[in-house]
Computed example of a mutant assay.
Amino acid sequence: MENAPPNLAADYLPHLAYDCVIFGFSGERLKILILEYHNTGWFALPGGFVGRQESLDDAVKRGLLERTGLDNLHLEQFHTFGSMQRFSPEAMRSILEASGFAPENYPQLLDRFVSVAYYSLLNYHHVSPTPDALADSLQWYPLEELPPLLFDHNEMVSRALAALRNNLDTFLAGVNMLPAQFTIGELQSMHEAILGEPVNRASFQRRMLQSGILQRHEKRYSGGAHKAPYLYSFAAKKDGPQ
């Protein structure tokens, strides 16, 4: 965790930030990683800035490693946010003061930022949430129980969820939240948590088995053999023509 806010003028690109909607799932509920700023009761998505000597994607991966303890996450860039409504120097001033930092020492943080937004999906039991210098906590909140978020972060969550739902089937092979081997029922539970509604079991199983993205393994025996479900994993992607 950093001991102070970043010196944007020296180390980071001006007016450019990123924010991340980190979805977590562990078999039942979809959750989102949210930070709470020191002594304010204000909540926001985790984000950061882009170093002058790093790419945008590398900056996001670095920030998520610092926040979650995980690397090699599957990330999707889904929108760029640049509305004037997200410009609130008064709120940023309050956040700095509440953390014991003099706002005049960080004038760049009071300036306007365009933010590139990403989402990722993972098993939240694998995460060690670590807040930054301005936050009291970084915690998982169920999607249905999110606190009000600062700036345009509620819109970010809505857009990220829509993007995830629209690209769910193609996103699956790179997902980070299911076990290496899983049942069709577990895969269905994940779909239902993300879609926010039940799906027909028979048609879901048929569609998944016909999709070509699954590889079948031995059955999972936990009682009567007639009830043992097959285990599946995501099939390795085939390389294109050489």
Rank of each mutant, 00 (worst) to 15 (best):
E218R: 14
A235E: 12
H191F: 15
G240V: 08
L70P: 08
E155A: 07
R29Q: 11
F204S: 00
A135I: 01
P46M: 08
D71E: 14
A135Q: 15
L149Q: 06
S88R: 13
D136P: 02
A235K: 13
R86I: 11
D11N: 15
Y141A: 08
A9C: 04
V199S: 01
V116F: 03
F43Y: 15
Q188H: 03
A102C: 09
I184K: 03
A173S: 14
A202L: 06
W42L: 15
P241K: 04
L8A: 09
A160C: 00
E192P: 02
V50E: 01
E28F: 04
P5K: 04
S211K: 05
P129K: 05
N39K: 11
G41D: 05
M208V: 06
F43R: 03
H126N: 15
R201K: 15
D71L: 04
P14N: 08
L33V: 09
G100M: 06
V50H: 02
A10V: 02
G69L: 13
A235H: 01
S158T: 14
P107M: 01
A193E: 07
Y106G: 01
S222H: 07
S115Y: 00
A17I: 02
P142Y: 01
H74M: 04
Y118Q: 11
F113D: 10
H226S: 13
G41H: 09
L134K: 07
I184V: 05
L75T: 06
C20I: 14
F171L: 13
P89R: 07
S88K: 14
N39I: 02
Y232V: 03
I194Y: 03
A236Q: 14
L146V: 09
A162P: 06
L33E: 00
S203D: 11
L164D: 07
L122S: 03
K227Y: 00
R62K: 15
S211G: 13
L121K: 02
